[in-house]
Computed example of a mutant assay.
Amino acid sequence: MKSKFLVMYLLLAVSFTAFGQEKQSSKAKKQSSAVVEQGLIKVSIMYPFAEGKSFDMAYYASKHMPMVAGFLGSNLVKYTIEKGLSNGMPNQPLPYVAIGTFYVKSLSDYQAAIGPHREAIRADFANYTNIIPIILVSEVVR
Rank of each mutant, 00 (worst) to 15 (best):
K2Q: 14
S3H: 15
S3Q: 15
S3D: 12
K4S: 11
F5P: 01
L6A: 14
V7C: 13
V7W: 14
Y9A: 15
Y9C: 12
Y9R: 13
Y9I: 10
L10F: 10
L11A: 12
L12A: 13
L12I: 12
L12P: 00
A13T: 02
V14W: 14
V14D: 11
V14L: 15
S15F: 14
A18V: 04
F19H: 14
G20R: 09
G20Y: 13
G20I: 02
K23Y: 11
Q24L: 14
S25W: 02
K27G: 07
A28L: 13
K29V: 07
K29M: 13
K30A: 15
S32H: 13
S33M: 09
S33G: 07
S33L: 12
V35G: 06
V36T: 11
E37Y: 05
E37Q: 11
Q38C: 11
G39Y: 06
G39L: 05
I41R: 06
K42D: 05
K42W: 03
I45D: 04
M57G: 03
A58D: 14
A58R: 08
A58N: 13
Y59T: 08
Y60Q: 02
Y60D: 01
A61L: 06
A61F: 04
S62W: 00
S62V: 02
K63H: 09
K63R: 12
H64N: 03
H64Q: 07
M65F: 06
P66G: 07
M67V: 05
V68I: 08
V68N: 04
V68Q: 07
V68W: 03
A69H: 05
G70D: 05
G70R: 10
L72M: 10
G73I: 00
G73K: 06
S74Y: 00
K78T: 05
K78D: 02
Y79P: 00
Y79S: 02
I81M: 14
I81W: 03
I81T: 06
E82I: 01
G84V: 03
S86Y: 13
S86D: 08
S86G: 07
N87V: 03
G88E: 01
N91A: 09
Q92H: 11
P93H: 04
P93K: 12
P93T: 01
P93Q: 05
L94D: 03
P95F: 07
P95G: 06
Y96V: 04
Y96C: 01
V97P: 00
A98R: 02
A98H: 05
T101Q: 14
V104G: 04
V104N: 02
K105Y: 02
S108T: 10
S108M: 06
D109V: 02
D109E: 13
I114G: 05
I114M: 09
I114T: 03
I114L: 14
P116I: 05
P116N: 08
R118W: 10
I121C: 07
I121A: 04
R122C: 05
N127M: 08
Y128T: 00
T129P: 00
T129R: 06
N130T: 04
N130D: 15
P133L: 10
P133W: 08
I134R: 13
I135V: 15
I135C: 10
I135E: 10
S138H: 04
S138C: 07
E139I: 11
E139S: 13
V140F: 11
R142K: 15
R142F: 14
